[in-house]
Amino acid sequence: MPQPTDLLFYAFAGLTLLFGFLCVANPLSRNPVTSAMFLVLTIVSMAGLFVLLNAFFLAAVQILVYAGAVMVLFLFVIMLLDLREEERRKLNRVALGLGGVAIAGLAGILVRALASATPKSASVPAVEGTTIELGRILFRSYLLPFEIVSVLLLVAMVGVILLSKKELK
């Protein structure tokens, strides 16, 4: 009798794979914006997988940062570059072959790693990435780097405004 979480895992994993496939090889549309939208769905389904691993914070960050901020950036780039010719592009045999080799290699490594792993570690302590724990580490042990990074973001902001200002004088 499978647990309900197992069912959810297969559902989210299947959705991740499906959306991932549709993102790179959509048979209905070759529009880059459609691909980007499927990438959003892939990321959201992966966030579901993180929730099943009890990594709630990671799931929230995944949606906020990747599905939110990074995807907006992607869409900006796609729309700025106006990739019309991308829709007409023919498949490149060499690239296809190299891609196949890369996939085969990665799959080989994965299968090997899974086969050599001994599945006895059922009693692994559950790593719970709760926000409380993370916040405690961030604001106690790693307070100083955290503050330095905030200065870094300020510098980056000042730099971007300076370098993109219209008038030079």
Partner: peptide, 16 residues
């Protein structure tokens, strides 16, 4: 960790 944060602050500032 502090080494990295400090070096990044230096690097990003120098880019600008």
């Amino acid at each position: 960790v502090l080494l990295f944060a400090a070096l990044e602050l230096i690097t990003i500032t120098f880019v600008v």
